[in-house]
Design a protein around this nucleic acid. Structure first.
Lengths: 184, 184
DNA sequence: TTATTCATGTAATTTGTTACATGATTCT
DNA sequence: AGAATCATGTAACAAATTACATGAATAA
């Protein structure tokens, strides 16, 4: 997740490793935060891979290695954002995608949300089937964890459904603003 | 999490590493599953630490190293179940505790649930505060991840509240069965 | 007899955290 | 002058995964 989160931040403008750490602490801390021990090596690796480019900061300042994202980096980010999500890995992985969905075209973002919703739905269906596979009757708390799964994925599905609709609504409104509206 | 999950399964009876893997696939797969590369080394380590003891399986069978939990292992398990939970690590860590809460006395289990609920509440309050610390106005999707956090922790809190009440109700009913009820 | 399942284990690799090392710049 | 913050990086350690190696017992 580290690499893509870094690319996501760089997609909004050039930043140093230090900047990225500070931004994470401010805005993504509730689902993900990387240490310098992850960030700096990741930046170095991605530079070698041609995803980002390092430049020095403007003139008089102290050592500040400012990275900017390259086209290959944008492509990798977009590919990640659109790739199938393993919803079972927990909400952090979902939120990391969601947070940077603004980097995609509105249509692609909506498709991605739909994909996340489908993933939650599939997982819930799987859990429903898995519950029957249990050999002995589970105790109260074991049954509860099973029920939690079902209710959690239902929550996710309805939340993502609403998000998809809100995003579509936003899209409609902004295109209506762009072109003067017809009718009414 | 591996060690405690293994201890949790052993608390219900002696098992081999292979048994534990199979049980995980059947009953905890939706939130946690360990590989042999985690399970066997963990069993070996915990044997050295005096938490579990290995015996051979009864008589004629092939090589089967069956482990049983020792009092020190039960103590470690109970301590883990009652220790403060970092709710931000995701639902898997909550569910791992919940799944084995039947290993505690009913009163202790209720206390643990209350602790989990408090953790979710604190986290939600922290998130509410953190939202205001944001410097620039976030874009639509960035604001959405923030909102998700708030709604997710609210969901967790109310779910755990209901679980606590159900568990308490169960406790009352079973003690009422034990002693014939007084009044009415 | 051959494939599958039972059964245990190790080695290489991955991924990340924590702590340390270093030093410039700005604030008090 | 001294403390705090800016800024980058490395080394030691931790925890797990994947893939490999091995072989007995059972079902086809």
């Amino acid at each position: 997740m580290t690499d893509f989160t870094i690319l996501g931040f760089l997609a909004y403008g050039p930043k140093s490793g230090y900047d990225i750490k500070r931004l994470m602490a401010m805005s993504t801390a509730h689902f993900y935060q990387a240490s310098y021990g992850s960030i700096y090596p990741a930046l170095g690796r991605m530079e070698k891979e041609g995803l980002v480019a390092a430049g020095r900061a403007d003139g008089s300042r102290r050592l500040r290695r400012v990275y900017e994202i390259l086209p290959a980096g944008r492509a990798a980010l977009a590919q990640w954002l659109g790739s199938p999500l393993d919803i079972a890995k927990g909400p952090a992985f979902l939120l990391a995608r969601l947070f940077f969905l603004g980097c995609l075209a509105p249509g692609e973002a909506s498709e991605a949300i739909q994909g996340f919703k489908d993933a939650a739905g599939k997982r819930r269906a799987w859990l429903e089937g898995a519950t029957e596979g249990l050999p002995q009757q589970p105790d109260f708390f074991q049954a509860s964890t099973q029920r939690f799964g079902l209710e959690y994925y239902a929550f996710l599905e309805s939340w993502l459904d609403r998000l998809g609709k809100d995003a579509a609504g936003r899209r409609k409104r902004s295109s209506a603003k762009a072109k003067p509206k017809e009718g009414s």
